[in-house]
Each structure stands twice: as structure tokens, then as C-alpha cells.
Amino acid sequence: MSETTGRVLQLLGLLQSRRVWSGEELAGRLGVTTRSVRRDVDRLRELGYPVHASTGHGGGYQLGAGAALPPLLLDPEEAVAMAVCLRVAAGGSVAGVGESALRALSKLDQVMPARLRSQVAAVHDATVTLGAATDTPVEPDVLMTLARASRDHEHVTADYVDIRGNVTQRRLEPYHLVTTGRRWYLMCFDRDRVDWRSLRLDRMSQVRAVGSTFTPRDAPDAASYVRRSISSSPYPYIARVRYFAPHDVVAQAFSAASVHIEPEGPDACILTAGADDPERMVPWLAMPGCDFEVLEPPEVIEAAQRVAGRIARACRT
């Protein structure tokens, strides 16, 4: 790196660290004249950094906001602090933050020296969070590997424990990571099963990007696909229920991760959900507090009749 290039990067770091610098302050920090500072400021402007200059009391050089976010320079301590915060945010419960934090963490991890990466891991390993949003912790390295592989269209191999406890080896094309706030899922194409799959990250181990890449396929919408998969496919009984209330009213009674709801006109909707036990499912289906009709399957219809009979007898007693 030339002396001039190094000085320009140092100037950029100073401008990012404080709101306003006078020309004399910058010259003193960089060990050059104010004329050299003006030249270096012009070089930053040519690179697209909006550096504003003002005169008079309180004036000086200031890095402004541009149409696009310019690259940031971070010293080692700042990089470690940012990575630690992003790891926390990636597993948090704030709507819309988790996946964005994961993408940012993936970019930062890619360029972070091994020494700093180990510092971040040490802080993370020594930290315990009370009231964590996720009930099934996921290893940060698994998140990072899958995030990069999804971005770069890279093949992945992994061991996976299915709902019955069987361990299988998977060869995957990863497309999207989806979080429900409680769990992380990978929407991917399973090369051996020749079909799309939604896999829980906490059930994955030995996750490895193999280096080869794939051509992206026409993929289903990730959020809709995962929502359908986790609300019905793992269960032996899949119920379809018509509610005589608007979609928005019914949706407030259920977790978005546990059901799939489709509007049926302005005053009705159809809910699809799965369960292991039909009778335990019936009180749960009554949660919206409005009239409803179980459409299928027969096991859930019969369970609703039995539960209704018990409640009627309890009321007479």
C-alpha cells in the first residue's frame, strides 16, 4: 500500500470517528500540511464519499450521508464489538432484525482476521442471555456457513435428525434462512430426494460448504413454504377449519409459525394446522372466540363432537 493510499484510509477512519474535524486537527493527526489534507479530501470525494467542508467558528470537515452507504473502516476493537452485537441481534426477537443482522455478520465474518474472529467466539461462548427468544439454540457457525452458502449458491452437506430421531446425511442446495423468532429454518433443495425441504437448523450438525456451486432453480417463496411446512407436515392429523370471522381477527389468536390461514371473502377464512392428538387440538382451535366449522379430517370432526358433548354435560352439572 502506498503512503498516500494509507493516509487517505487513515483520514477516512478519522472522519468516521467524529462528527467534525478542523483542517489543522486532521493535519496534526496525519502528520502532513493542511494542503495535503485538502488533496486527500478531494480523493475521498472522487471515490464517492460525501465530505463536506465549512468555514467559520465550529466549521471543518464532516463526512455526510450519501445516497448509498459507503464502506466503513473499523479498527480491531470496533470490529469485535460490532460482530458481538450482530450475533446477539441475529438470535433476537425484534421483528425484521434477525435475518438482516445475520447477513451483515456474514459479510463481516468473511473479512475478519482469524485473531479477531476467535475473540468474538470467546465473548459469545462466555455470554448467557436471560429470556432468549429462541427455544432451540443454533450454533453461530452453522448460521454463518448456511448464510454464506445461500448467498454464494454453494453446495452444502449436513447430518440431519428428523422428527423420529433418525439421522440422515443430506446433500443440499441452500436458498434462504427463515426465522420464526423461536427457531431457524433452511429452505433448500435436497439433491438426493430431488425435492424442496424445510430443515430446522438446531437439528443440523456437521454442516459444511463443499466448494462447488449450483445454478439457482425456480424456488417457491421461502416464507410461505416454511410456514406451510412447519404448520402441517410434521403431524399425523392435518385439520382444515372454516372460521366465520375475517382473516385478521383469526390470525391474532395463533402464532404465524403454527398455522396457515387463507381469506375466504371478507368475513371468513380457512385455517390449516397439524396436531398429534385431535382432542387436544379442539380447544386450541376454539381460541379465536368466534364460530367455526371443522371441514376435515374425520378424526378431528369426531374429536370436536366428543369435546363439545363433555362441555355440554359439564354445563348441565
Rank of each mutant, 00 (worst) to 15 (best):
A251S: 14
P174L: 03
D162W: 07
V241L: 07
V156E: 02
D218A: 11
Y237V: 07
R227M: 06
S205A: 13
R208P: 08
R182D: 15
S255G: 11
D195G: 10
D267V: 11
D125N: 08
A147T: 15
L177F: 06
T180E: 12
A132N: 05
T145K: 05
V259M: 01
P234A: 00
L172C: 13
M187R: 04
P174T: 08
G265Q: 04
D202N: 05
R151D: 14
R228P: 06
A126L: 15
Q252K: 04
T179D: 12
Y243Q: 03
A147G: 12
H124D: 13
I261Q: 10
D159V: 12
T129D: 08
T157W: 05
D267Y: 07
D152A: 05
P137Y: 00
T134A: 03
P216Y: 03
D162P: 10
S224F: 02
D267G: 12
M187N: 05
R193D: 07
T145S: 09
T213S: 15
M204S: 13
A219D: 08
A149P: 00
V259N: 03
I230W: 00
V138H: 00
G131Y: 03
V259W: 02
A253R: 06
S232G: 06
H155T: 08
P220C: 00
A253T: 00
D195T: 06
R227F: 00
S258M: 06
V249G: 06
L143H: 10
C188W: 12
